[in-house]
Computed example of a mutant assay.
Amino acid sequence: MTGAAGDGGAAGLELVIVGCAGHGRELLDIVHAINEAAAGTAWRVRGFVDDTPTEVNLKRLQRLDVPYLGSLVTLGDLPTGTHVAVGIGDPRSRRRVARRVASHRLPAATLVHPDATLGTDAEHGEGLVLFAGARVTTNVTFGHHVQLNQNVTIGHDCVVRDHVSVNPLAAVSGDCHLDEGVLVGAGAVVLQGLRIGAEATVGAGACVVRDVPAGTVVKGVPAR
């Protein structure tokens, strides 16, 4: 397995979070939890970058006592080795930003909340984010920049490709395949052995009982 959570050592690694909105600030909470569990500083947060921060979210950053560093152009000025966490929930937007991060040759942080579990024989690319309560069982393979929100479950032998987002309380059964850029909505269920095609969206609360073609939106029970 690559990129263990909070793999910052005693001194801690420098981290910048992209996205000042709620999703990005939730990543800051994960970092705080990792540092607390490590009884030290696994990550040192330099601040946030965002191309279009709202005044409301900038004020929220001030309350958190974390600086706003500027637009994504600022990434080019960061010291070599500074890690970046992409705090964007939408898969397509996250993919665009992840490419910009990669163009600056900056490593993507893997963040696993201490209250999440990553089972045996699991593999992942850089940028994996597991929120509190996420449960991943055995022999699961993740691509790059996958994000599992609060209380998500991923069953055995699943393959989850790059930039997939699984929203809170969703359940993906065993032997499923989520292609690149899939979004699984809050509270949705994907039944055993199914494939969700690239860029498809599963609506909140849906129950998927058959394969979902690429680029489609399905919703309802059963999902159509």
Rank of each mutant, 00 (worst) to 15 (best):
R161K: 13
P114N: 01
V189G: 08
N149K: 11
R135K: 11
H145V: 07
G76Q: 08
L118F: 06
G70N: 04
V217G: 03
T216H: 13
E199K: 07
D115P: 00
E55V: 09
A132W: 04
G47C: 01
R135D: 08
A206H: 02
E14N: 14
G174K: 04
L28E: 12
S173V: 11
E199D: 14
A21V: 11
G8E: 01
V209W: 14
N139D: 15
I34D: 03
T216D: 14
G143E: 07
S103H: 07
G22V: 05
L75H: 07
G81Y: 00
G185L: 05
G76H: 01
T82M: 09
V182E: 12
G185Q: 02
G8H: 00
F48D: 04
V212G: 10
G181R: 10
D65N: 13
A39S: 15
V129A: 02
E180P: 11
N151A: 15
Q150S: 14
V136L: 07
L72F: 00
V146Q: 06
T216Q: 14
G9W: 03
G76T: 02
L72Q: 09
V208R: 03
G203L: 06
G215S: 08
G3V: 00
C158T: 12
R25Y: 02
I17P: 00
N149C: 13
R25D: 04
L64A: 12
V45P: 06
V16H: 02
F48P: 06
L106E: 07
A200P: 00
L75C: 05
E199W: 15
G70Y: 05
V84H: 10
D115I: 05
R210L: 12
Q192K: 11
T117A: 11
H124A: 07
F48K: 08
V66Y: 01
D50L: 04
H156V: 09
Y68E: 10
R161P: 01
T110F: 03
N167W: 13
F142M: 09
R94H: 03
S103R: 10
L78Q: 08
A98P: 05
H163Q: 12
P53N: 04
Y68G: 00
A223P: 01
R99T: 09
A102N: 08
K59C: 14
V73K: 13
S165V: 09
L194F: 05
G125I: 02
N149S: 14
G143I: 11
L13K: 15
T82C: 07
T138I: 13
G3I: 02
V101R: 06
G193A: 02
R99M: 09
H83I: 06
G143N: 11
L178F: 11
D121I: 12
P213A: 06
Q62Y: 02
V209R: 13
P168Q: 10
S103P: 03
G185Y: 00
P107H: 05
R25G: 05
